[in-house]
């Protein structure tokens, strides 16, 4: 049995202009000890689906799902109190902006110790000992002195390490990393990714890596799920995805990698993700798609496993896999 099983998850936000669908019937499965990457550009609903699962969305969000199971527990049925026992312990999350994600008014030691006290009921001495171990584990030098530091006294990379240490404090079965390296320096990015992957192997936990950076995906992920405008448009193993993308959006994302640029100009995908008022009928990617055909504006079919479950009437590289 998988660790995480989400079927047909939709999230709608109540806005002044009516309901806005941020996540549209997404399925997410994750096995124990697996690295799953969710890719897509800004506004494709990657973070929202994860926040929905954690129960961290504001009350304006309406969450519906056929199934939302984590570690054998039905997340749609449990009470808030029961969910609070899971999040921060078995299921933890780190965020994009490490500096603003830590509370500026409390020391690193306090913020780390808080989780240990809440979920593991450790006393003061145990908390201190464990906090030092955790900081050591995430590669923070002189962890003892760092406990009394405030977030603004540490660099972005160090803060992200603290966030990771905090997330790992309850020995989670699943760690969700929401664009963990986007706000960091390029050199630090690689260090943080290496750290995440090595910890994932060591702790045998599952890792869901949300990113818009195909480079990050190539380096870390095992399985990749591509999201566009709140929909899951393709899902494949990482090697297959890079050699034979089936959905035109995946292919366009790959072509937009700076490494693949020919000439002086960086390639990009024309247009932007449709918003609340310009949602097309039929395939949501059709207005930006290079391979668009007439029937794309009508019903869209979900392709088979062999074609990466692509949500596309005219998948690319169909003959290779067939």
């Amino acid at each position: 049995m998988g660790l995480l099983d989400i079927r047909n998850l939709s999230v709608d936000f109540q806005t002044a202009g009516g309901l806005f669908r941020a996540v549209d019937g997404v399925d997410i499965q994750c096995e124990r000890g697996e690295i799953l990457s969710i890719v897509g550009e800004s506004g494709s609903g990657k973070s929202v689906s994860m926040l929905a699962m954690m129960g961290l969305l504001p009350w304006t969000a309406k969450i519906t799902a056929e199934k939302m199971e984590f570690d054998g527990k039905d997340l749609t049925k449990i009470t808030k109190r029961e969910r609070r026992k899971i999040i921060g312990k078995d299921m933890a999350m780190i965020f994009q902006e490490p500096i603003s994600s830590l509370n500026p008014c409390f020391t690193v030691g306090f913020q780390l110790g808080e989780s240990l006290k809440l979920h593991l009921g450790m006393n003061r001495a145990e908390r201190k000992k464990r906090s030092i171990e955790l900081l050591e584990m995430v590669g923070i030098p002189a962890p003892e002195t760092r406990l009394s530091a405030f977030p603004h006294q540490l660099s972005g990379g160090m803060n992200q390490r603290v966030m990771i240490a905090m997330a790992l404090s309850g020995d989670p079965k699943l760690l969700i990393a929401d664009e963990p390296t986007t706000a960091l320096d390029v050199t630090i990015q690689a260090q943080i990714l290496d750290l995440l992957v090595s910890l994932q192997k060591e702790k045998e936990m599952a890792l869901i890596l949300i990113t818009h950076d195909m480079g990050v995906v190539a380096e870390t992920a095992e399985r990749v799920q591509v999201q566009y405008a709140g929909q899951r448009v393709e899902e494949q193993h990482v090697t297959g995805l890079f050699t034979d993308p089936h959905h035109p959006y995946t292919s366009a994302l790959l072509n937009a990698l700076p490494e693949r640029a020919v000439g002086r100009k960086l390639p990009s995908i024309p247009g932007v993700v449709p918003g609340q008022y310009d949602r097309p009928t039929g395939c949501l990617f059709a207005p930006r798609c290079a391979h668009v055909q007439d029937d794309c504006h009508g019903v869209v079919t979900r392709q088979s496993d062999a074609l990466g479950n692509a949500l596309c009437n005219h998948p690319l590289n169909a003959e290779v896999t067939a």
């Binding site: 954690m54 961290l56 969910r83 609070r84 026992k85 899971i86 999040i87 921060g88 312990k89 933890a92 999350m93 965020f95 902006e97 603003s100 994600s101 830590l102 509370n103 500026p104 808080e114 989780s115 809440l118 979920h119 966030m163 905090m166």
Partner: peptide
């Protein structure tokens, strides 16, 4: 609405 409040909630704090 700050990020650190979301972090605090993500810890499972009441």
């Amino acid at each position: 609405g700050e990020d650190y409040v979301r972090t605090a909630r993500a810890k499972g704090l009441s």
